[in-house]
Structure formats: structure tokens, C-alpha cells
Design a protein around this nucleic acid. Structure first.
Length: 314
RNA sequence: GCCGAGGUAGCUCAGUGGUAGAGCACCGGUCUGAAAAACCGGGUGUCGACAGUUCGAUCCUGUCCCUCGGCA
């Protein structure tokens, strides 16, 4: 296999400039970009999710002529998840054999799912989840956890009772298949990103620098975010629909309702974004074969892209 | 200037004559179809300063400094 045709991953925390680097790479070597982002998939909330600005043309979302996949297509009432990402990305890649692909984004779990592979497990069952969530609400998370312990001791031991999402998923797997998660899962998902299948880059700013960028971005996107939230409500979407659960929209809505001053709302969004960036850093630290790049050491995105291409050729 | 209230963690504040806690922030981590999710772990401190009383003071006493109200 031609080494130059291996896909590239441009990962990094939120506000690290992944999109711009990906676009610079596409400009240098051609190719298409696949957004690895659980929120940029939605329509109507493009600014607040920092989705690249583009236009729909011939069935593709294009940014400056570059195909930018998996952005701006999903209804706010729909949910997206790692399996859908993995399957869709797979289709996009196989639709253009020999094409160059740049995976850009910060949703580590999606990268993990696509590059390491998903086990063949049943998908989410909304009704069952709602039923289990209700049970947890009525009888407590500890009760749900004890239910899990009685059918799947290994999962129960690994999942803290407070982690309601994972407790529910483990119970869901058991109810749908009759087998405990520990039996269904092969462990391949947890592997290191396969070196022979992908080149991975991580954009790693010094912390104070990233914090400044986050602050700046909050200031830049807050007003448009409020407008997006307002429009969504006007179109009939509920405040708690899946899309509007994206980071910051709750605060934008609170501001809209007058429950939060603009200053407080922005401050809160900045904190949430910083915490999110930290979780991303923690996630990506697991990968030992990523190329770490400090963007501050380069003049611009093009220089970073050139550096990445040089590294890839080696 | 006088009177009153107060100075304890990054912030808001609780507390005790035996060198301190909470929430949030912050730091570290977990992660298999919700992941911008949901969690787990950690106190990071000259208790305003200086004296005095005491075996021992963040706590009691005095002086000073600072902040916020009220009166001038």
C-alpha cells in the first residue's frame, strides 16, 4: 500500500485550529476532509460548534472547494453516535478508492471506533434506555447498578454506580442479547491507533495559550450562538433536543430567557469549554504514536501542513 | 475622623483553644453505539500583620493595616 495514501488524523483539543490545518493540508495535497466531531454534524448550530463555513454543492458540503464530510446535515432532533460515524466514514472512504483523506476533529471516541473497529453489538434502544433511566430516577442509580451486578458482575465492577450512561448501556446489552457486555466485547476497540493504517497528529498548544484561544472564541461566537438557539426554538425545536445539548447552548438559552447575564453565560461557556479541552487532552494522551505539534512554533497553518507532509514522507 | 460589619483555598463562604472544611474553580484519571456525554480520584492554605495570655492561638486580648456599609 502506498504510504502517501494513508489517511491523516488531525486531532487536538477544542479551539486548537484543527480545521484550518486540515484545510491547509487539503490545499497542499488535495484530498477530502472528514470531520470527526459529534456536534458539527448538526444543522443550524454551525457557528456555536465552530463548524467550518462552507456551502452545499452537488450534494457535498464544500469549504473553499474542498469536500468537507459529516458536517451540517443532521436534524437537531436526531442523535448521532460512534457507530453511525464509523459506518458513514467507511462509506465515504470506500466511495473514493485511492483518494486522500484527512480526518479532522476532536471526538476521540469516533476516531477510536473507526480506526480500531467496532464490535458487532446491538445499537442503542431508545425505549429501553428511557425505561432504565426512569427506573434509576425512581429507585436510584445504586439500584440500577445492583441490577447490573446480578447479571454482569464484571461490568458492574468496572463501572461506578454514578455513571448512569454506562450502567444503562451495559444493562441494555444484556437485555438485548442475553449476554453480559464482558462476553460480547472483544477489546479491539481499546487498541492503540494502528500505525500501519493512519498518520496521526495532535495539535498541542501550551495551556495558557489554549486558554486564551478559548476565551477569544467564546467572545466571537456567543452572539451568533444565541441567534442560532433562538432560531431553533422559533422553528419548533425543544430546548432539550439532542442538538441543543451541545456545549454552551444551554447557557445561550438561559441568557435568552434572562436567567443569566451575558457576562455570566460567557464565563460559564468558557469554563465548560476549558473542561472539555482537558478531557480531550486526557483522551488523546493514550496514543503514543501521534506526532505532537505545538502550533505556536509555526508561522501559519500552511507551515504546519508542510511539516506534517514532510513527516509523513519519512 | 467616629460607629458598625468583616478579612480563612483561585472565588463565595462555613468552622474550632489541640495547626482547618463545603460548593464552584483547578489538577489527575476512566472511557465500546449519548463522548461537546456520563463519571472516578485529589485540598492546592503563612486562617490580614505584629505583639500578649496560654502547655498550645486561626479562634481569646491589644495595636496596626485593608475592605464594605452608616454618620459626619
Amino acid at each position: 500500500m502506498d504510504k502517501n495514501n494513508l489517511p491523516l488524523i488531525i486531532a487536538g483539543p477544542t479551539a486548537s485550529g484543527k480545521t484550518d490545518v486540515a484545510l491547509a493540508l487539503a490545499a497542499l495535497c488535495g484530498g477530502e476532509i472528514i470531520s470527526v466531531d459529534s456536534r458539527q454534524v448538526y444543522k443550524l448550530i454551525n457557528v456555536g460548534t465552530a463548524a467550518p463555513k462552507g456551502v452545499w454543492k452537488d450534494g457535498f458540503y464544500k469549504v473553499g472547494g474542498v469536500k468537507y464530510h459529516l458536517v451540517d446535515f443532521l436534524d437537531l432532533n436526531e442523535t448521532f453516535d460512534v457507530s453511525r460515524f464509523s459506518a458513514t466514514a467507511g462509506k465515504i472512504v470506500s466511495s473514493n478508492p485511492g483518494g486522500k483523506f484527512i480526518f479532522a476533529g476532536g471526538t476521540g471516541m469516533y476516531m477510536q471506533g473507526y480506526f480500531c473497529g467496532m464490535d458487532d453489538l446491538p445499537p442503542a434502544d431508545k425505549a429501553l434506555r428511557a425505561e432504565l433511566a426512569l427506573l434509576a430516577e425512581q429507585k436510584g442509580r445504586a439500584y440500577l447498578h445492583s441490577l447490573l451486578a446480578s447479571v454482569d458482575a464484571a461490568s458492574a465492577a468496572a463501572i461506578p454506580p454514578g455513571n448512569i450512561h454506562r450502567v444503562i448501556r451495559a444493562l441494555e446489552l444484556y437485555k438485548l442479547t442475553g449476554k453480559p457486555a464482558s462476553v460480547l466485547r472483544t477489546g479491539k476497540f481499546c487498541a492503540e491507533l494502528p500505525r500501519e493504517k493512519v498518520f496521526a497528529v495532535y495539535l498541542d498548544w501550551e495551556k495558557p495559550e489554549l486558554e486564551k484561544r478559548i476565551l477569544k472564541r467564546t467572545e466571537l461566537i456567543f452572539d451568533p450562538m444565541v441567534k442560532e438557539a433562538e432560531l431553533a426554538l422559533k422553528l419548533g425545536y425543544a430546548e432539550d433536543c439532542p442538538g441543543l445539548k451541545s456545549l454552551g447552548y444551554r447557557e445561550a438559552l438561559s441568557y435568552l430567557k434572562g436567567d443569566l447575564s451575558k457576562e455570566k453565560a460567557m464565563e460559564r461557556i468558557t469554563v465548560l469549554t476549558r473542561q472539555y479541552a482537558k478531557r480531550q487532552r486526557t483522551w488523546f494522551r493514550r496514543y503514543e504514536n501521534m506526532k505532537i505539534i505545538n502550533p505556536a512554533l509555526y508561522k501559519n497553518e500552511t507551515e504546519i501542513a508542510e511539516e506534517i507532509l514532510l513527516w509523513k514522507e519519512r
